[in-house]
Computed example of a mutant assay.
Amino acid sequence: MTTPPGSARILVRVFTQRFSCTRRGARLARQLVLVELHGWGVPEGTPLADDAGLLVAELAANAVLHGRVPGRDFELRMTLLAGVLRVEVSDARSDRRPEVRPPDHRPGSGYGLRIVEALATDWGVVDRLVGKTVWAELPRRVRRVLPGGHGDDHDLG
């Protein structure tokens, strides 16, 4: 979790949008990511789109729950690079740093970053002038099992 953001890779596409720091804003962020990925040639229902949607849902929910500052939005940035899809969610609170904690046995609590950690090849947090950015990366190439049990690598996007 120490990879610096924006490492030297070939930029393919970028999507950036601000959302209200509300549950509705978090849902909209996930939906727009799926629409944008479809436009980039990564249709909904593919492993990359599914994983990206889940990452955005978790990171946006955390921004709304833990990073909310009244009157401030959160920002989503999705970057398609050669070999990797990078998702960044920025909020206005630098005092609340994300951390993976032991599971909390209350329903709906404590699993967001565990999901991010399980899906992403790497993730981390960096400070901004105001607030912080939590980022995660997914590989663009996924291994699919074809009929007959044979594997094949596909570039999805």
Rank of each mutant, 00 (worst) to 15 (best):
E58V: 05
V142A: 02
G157L: 02
E137R: 00
T46I: 02
V64E: 14
W123H: 02
L76V: 08
R96M: 13
A26M: 10
A92H: 15
W123L: 01
L81I: 06
R106Y: 14
A63Q: 06
G41Y: 00
V56C: 09
G39K: 08
R27V: 07
Q31C: 06
P103R: 09
G71N: 10
G25V: 00
Q17F: 06
R140Y: 05
L129G: 07
L37H: 04
V87K: 01
Q17D: 12
A82K: 06
V33L: 05
V33M: 05
L119R: 05
H38V: 05
R13T: 13
L11G: 14
D127E: 09
S109H: 11
R141H: 05
A52I: 03
G131M: 05
E137T: 01
G39Q: 11
H105V: 12
A29G: 01
L80A: 10
H66N: 12
T2I: 15
G131R: 03
R128L: 11
L34W: 04
E75S: 08
V14A: 15
V134N: 06
R143V: 12
R30S: 05
A8D: 15
I115C: 13
A120F: 01
A60P: 06
V130P: 04
Y111S: 11
L65K: 15
P147T: 04
V87Q: 02
P107M: 08
S109I: 09
V125T: 06
S20E: 15
T22Q: 12
Q31V: 10
V130S: 04
D73N: 11
D91I: 02
S7D: 15
R141T: 09
A26S: 10
D155T: 07
R9M: 12
P70R: 09
R114D: 12
I115F: 12
S109V: 08
G124D: 10
R18P: 13
R144D: 09
P103C: 14
P107C: 06
L55S: 04
